[in-house]
Design a protein around this nucleic acid. Structure first.
Length: 673
DNA sequence: AATCGTCTGCTTTTT
DNA sequence: GCAGACGATT
């Protein structure tokens, strides 16, 4: 072994033999099959540290993740093992952020401009709606959401827009791609698609990035789609030093285009890999782990593995039968309260997991009733708020004046006399003249067709944008200040507050806008990317606000999907009913295996206790519907499960002279279970 | 231009 | 049961 800094030596000593093998294998393809809770993140970070200790320059290391959160965590972990200066030089980013970086320096080779805008889902949807109503399918009923999903699926499979416009959908697809290019905009799928195209078709670009990233690591490999695999292959092709970490049993994003086959058939994509299996779980009791194992072994097509734990067997897993969803929520809230009181468990050690967001409401109500703090993960993003999107659209227009979608968003917000009729004519002109909407607004041909009033309004607006655009491109300017001035000058903020229903709402929205300015100012302190870099970061990290705001001390309410990668001492998994988990649509679509994995992910989040529940009736779409236990329940190892019938417990006679209430008795019964 | 009412149609959602 | 979309109303 070569010289290692003392701290490094200690870390390696900390690893189990398989983990150590994964860390020490640095050349050639490496597949790390990391079961739930087997110390995956530790292995990745230790491996990066090891590479550096072995003399690999940090610049040559690339670690790709799916979320910014994971990337940040990894970076923080690495900082405890490696000198700060070196950590900075390692590239740790999401697939999408990596693509933006590659594209900002070379997308012009594909006919886009390097200042392209990034469209999120709602921008995408807006554009598709516009296309559907304005062009191909005026009368046909074509669902914009469906169209969006189909286009996304097509792109993820690496298809370009089809040549034939036979079907309505392909006409929309073709049109959509053309419009995006005209707008100098790319959607999330394009980030991958165009990066793959750029690297595949331009040898010098590919060579540059291959030379740069000689050691490649990919986290959550089971979630990669076709394009992501292709991207990895393209970069790794020169040196073949590609290490992937993943768990086929935790593949739950098939519906988003993830290909389990990428990990199942890793050998096919990268011949003769070293394969390491991490099977020692450091998270859960053996009762929980055994329950998880018994469930997942019912799945075909998987890499056989047997998780084990050095922990004690622990409490049995409870499966509770409830009369209805209201009782279920009440029970969960009260059981959490009981355990908090009796066992002194702090709130943040609890999580309630469910299949659908709608299930959180009853839980919320009951927690609130008992004054138990909670944090709801998911739901509406900060960046989906109207005022945020508006301000960002103003910013985008300054950088990419050709971005019609952003321009349309703000052209009459606040109202400035450029109404729908005028906008309509401007759009027509831009189509005819084959130029962007903004160019039309500045075109004398167009302006002279308008009334004096409209002409004045447009000239004023275009002139204002133009002058701010010039300022933003002047070197050494404060972009936050410029944006603030623009928003002030347009009286956007005053108008926003005026249209609010309550003073509270007005205050909230104003705060949101101020937050954006502050964020941008902060961004400028730490980065030289300017407004462009800030917008990139914002569009690629919707959660960046969340962690700051969150009280970290409450009970976590979270969907099974969003819970992947997290762990909690006490987990409540609710709604284990047939047609909810597995979801009814999974049977039609033939994806029950994925539902089983979803439950597996849920079970393996639990460290010390796990309670699952199902209801005999549940409110569905406003009315009560009968419920049946999930077919997954009978797959669980019976010897590790304690079945509890809530109603039966309630009906057991209570001794008159007992001071205990019925609930106290119930609690006692449940606790001993 | 904004607001109100009625209709519809329903998983999950890392970027 | 509720949000989101759309059309009628002032």
């Amino acid at each position: 072994m070569q010289f290692l800094p003392p701290r490094m030596r200690f870390r390696l000593f900390d690893l189990n033999p398989e983990q150590e093998k994964a860390v020490r294998t640095i050349d050639g393809p490496l597949l790390i099959l990391a079961g739930a809770g087997t110390g995956k993140t530790r292995v990745i970070t230790a491996r990066v540290a090891y590479l550096i200790a072995q003399g690999v320059a940090p610049e040559h290391i690339l670690a790709v993740t799916f979320t910014n959160k994971a990337a940040n965590e990894m970076r923080e972990r690495l900082a405890t093992m490696v000198e700060k200066e070196q950590v900075k030089r390692v590239t740790m980013s999401t697939f999408h952020a990596l693509c933006v970086r590659i594209l900002r320096g070379g997308i012009d080779r594909l006919g886009y401009k390097n200042n392209f805008s990034i469209y999120d889902e709602s921008d995408q949807l807006g554009l598709i709606k516009k296309i559907i109503t304005r062009t191909a399918a005026r009368d046909e009923k074509i669902d914009p959401h469906l169209a969006k999903n189909l286009i996304s699926k097509a792109k993820n499979n690496g298809w370009s827009a089809p040549k034939d416009d036979q079907t309505l959908i392909s006409a929309v697809f073709t049109r959509y791609q053309v419009e995006l290019k005209n707008l100098n905009a790319v959607d999330f799928d394009d980030l991958l698609l165009l990066t793959v195209k750029l690297l595949a078709e331009h040898n010098e670009v590919r060579a540059k990035w291959q030379e740069r990233f000689r050691y490649l690591m990919v986290d959550e490999f089971q979630d990669t789609n076709r394009l992501q695999l292709e991207l990895v292959s393209l970069i790794a092709d020169a040196h073949k030093n590609v290490a992937v970490v993943g768990d086929d049993d935790q593949s739950i994003y098939g519906w988003r285009g993830a290909e389990v086959s990428n990990i199942l058939e890793f050998e096919h994509h990268f011949p003769n890999p070293t394969v390491v299996k991490l099977e020692q779980n450091y998270r859960s009791t053996n009762a929980i782990l055994g329950t998880a194992n018994s469930l997942i072994k019912n799945n075909p097509r998987r890499r056989a593995k047997q998780l084990w734990s050095a922990h004690a067997s622990g409490e049995n897993v409870r499966v509770v039968q409830m009369p209805d969803d209201r009782e279920e929520a009440k029970f969960v809230a009260e059981d959490i309260q009981r355990r908090n009181f009796a066992e002194n468990v702090v709130w943040k050690n609890f999580a309630v997991l469910y299949r659908m967001n709608a299930q959180s409401r009853l839980i919320e109500e009951n927690l609130r009733r008992l004054h138990i703090p909670y944090r709801l993960v998911g739901g509406k993003s900060f960046f989906d708020r109207r005022e945020i999107k508006d301000v960002l659209a103003y910013a985008t227009c300054l950088l990419n004046a050709d971005d019609d979608v952003s321009l349309l968003r703000i052209i009459n917000t606040p109202a400035r006399g450029i109404g729908p009729a005028v906008v309509e004519r401007a759009l027509e002109h831009s189509v005819h003249a084959k130029c962007s909407l903004f160019k039309s607004l500045q075109s004398p041909d167009f302006l002279e067709t308008l009334s004096v009033r409209a002409r004045t309004a447009i000239s004023e607006f275009a002139g204002m944008l133009d002058s701010f655009e010039t300022r933003i491109h002047t070197p050494l300017t404060d972009h936050a200040e410029i944006l603030r001035e623009l928003i002030t000058k347009t009286t956007y903020l005053d108008d926003l507050k005026r249209t609010c229903k309550s003073p509270d709402e007005a205050l909230d929205r104003e705060n949101n806008v101020q937050n954006i300015f502050n964020d941008l100012a902060q961004y400028q302190q730490r980065s030289s990317g300017g407004l462009q870099g800030f917008l990139d970061e914002v569009s690629l990290d919707q959660d960046r606000e969340k962690d700051k705001e969150d009280d970290q001390h409450g009970v976590t309410l979270i969907t099974l999907h969003a819970a992947k990668g997290l762990e909690f001492p006490h987990v409540y998994l609710i709604g284990l009913e047939e047609d909810l988990l597995p979801h009814s649509r999974s049977k039609i679509e033939g994806t029950v295996d994925e539902e089983r994995r979803l439950l597996y992910v849920g079970i393996t989040r639990a460290m010390s206790t796990l309670t699952m529940s199902w209801c005999r009736t549940r409110m569905k779409f406003g009315s009560a519907a009968p419920g049946h236990p999930s077919s997954f329940i009978k797959e669980l190892a019976p010897e590790l499960i304690e079945h509890v019938d809530f109603v039966k417990l309630m009906n057991t006679p209570v001794q008159e002279d007992t001071a205990k209430s019925r609930f106290a008795q119930l609690r006692a019964a449940l606790k001993s279970a």
